[in-house]
Design a protein around this nucleic acid. Structure first.
Lengths: 216, 216
DNA sequence: CGCCTTCTTGATGAGCATCAAGATCAGTGG
DNA sequence: CCACTGATCTTGATGCTCATCAAGAAGGCG
């Protein structure tokens, strides 16, 4: 963990760099209120709880030896995260925007209202799918997959706001910010989506069929 | 599953194309003897058991819509595989070489001699690590990781045989056969490994430090 | 020996990273 | 109200890495 903190400093705004609350003994269920960018847990910390998003959004990532950040997953309302192999976290979790979480102490296991194995297997299937996508899809296809993934979380709503920056998306898809921007532009100019609002973060899906075809 | 069989035919020798035994009701523990290339389960089949390798080696892969094969993992002696989210397999498992497996019926759950959650979390951590590697490591680094991974399974033995073909390795690392061959050559000419034997599948690690440095 | 499979090597090109600069916008303070 | 600042996003130019295409080399097996 010698190089870790340097890498962390590169990714966290200075004002938030050490903004990970010490994991303390939790009651079997606790509600957490988080500001944008606030840390939930970090690498090396003892894994003592699992979390469910109530509102807002969370990113979970790992840092590579070279300091590169790779986002493993984004989590939205009702989704679970934080379940860990071994005693200590090997990844980081942060709120992307103002969020509410519910945390469940693992030691309260018998009373947990969830099927841990189910969560784990679900995460595993998802991680495997992402492997396929990242390895063999083009930049444009990956961005299409991402947009579709975000859209599918809001069934029936054709326009929505992306909570995450282009940099987050890039680190999630294994691309650079520039490639992500170019792919968004390509989706826009080919009439598949429309973009507007602060930082072009509002997406309207104009041609869902074409989007689905790309993200296959 | 319309395009699936075409894709399968592309990857399985014709003589083995349909060589997946129907999954039948298993006693709580059964030993399986498999020839090289023989299927263990396939996509769409009901997931009814988990498996432990006794001897030999297994590859587990998924097929993409475009027919591309991506190998999610290789399994060696004592390792577990086949645990599945949902009722049906979404991947394929095959013996790479003559192998012995032990299969455990899932319905015999209370008597299972293993911690399913542990296996699932372990697989999840592994899948996540592979995501990082595949996204941001160069071809040479990925092959170095692979060689080190294989070597680490045989502690204390500096020379070993790779059970899998270059094509398997390519589909595992997200590269082409040619790129894998070139990377092996580079490792050889830079004095990190030595290769010989049938199909250059015998590997001797000459410079473990350099290998480790590459596969970081 | 000839055929097939697997592995290697070479030449070329496509796609994305990288480097650089401009555009847009929110926030800040005169 | 407007200029200034910093963050985020976009666009352009260039080069590197790896995929692709093509062909040769090295076994294994009839």
């Amino acid at each position: 963990m010698t190089t870790l903190n340097q890498a962390v400093d590169r990714h966290l705004p200075a004002s938030m760099g050490m903004d990970f609350p010490e994991q303390r003994k939790l009651a079997s269920s606790t509600t957490l209120e988080l500001r944008a960018g606030q840390g939930i847990y970090r690498e090396g910390q003892r894994a003592a709880a699992i979390y469910q998003v109530q509102s807002g959004a969370v990113r979970v990532y790992r840092l590579m030896q070279n300091g590169h950040r790779h986002i493993l997953s984004f989590y939205g309302p009702n989704e679970w995260f934080g379940l860990q192999d071994g005693l200590f976290h090997d990844d980081f979790a942060e709120a992307i925007c103002a969020s509410q979480l519910r945390s469940f102490s693992i030691s309260g296991l018998p009373t947990l209202p969830v099927n841990l194995l189910g969560i784990a297997l679900n995460s595993l299937a998802y991680a495997n799918s992402r492997q396929l996508m990242i390895v063999r899809q083009s930049a444009l296809e990956r961005v299409a997959v991402f947009v579709k993934e975000m859209a599918d979380r809001r069934p029936g709503i054709s326009e929505f706001e992306l909570m995450m920056s282009r940099a987050d998306i890039a680190d999630y898809l294994g691309l650079t910010v520039e490639s992500v921007a170019r792919s968004f532009t390509k989706l826009r100019t080919s009439g598949i989506i429309r973009l507007h609002g602060r930082g072009q973060r509002y997406v309207r899906i104009v041609n869902p069929e074409a989007l689905a075809a790309l993200s296959m």
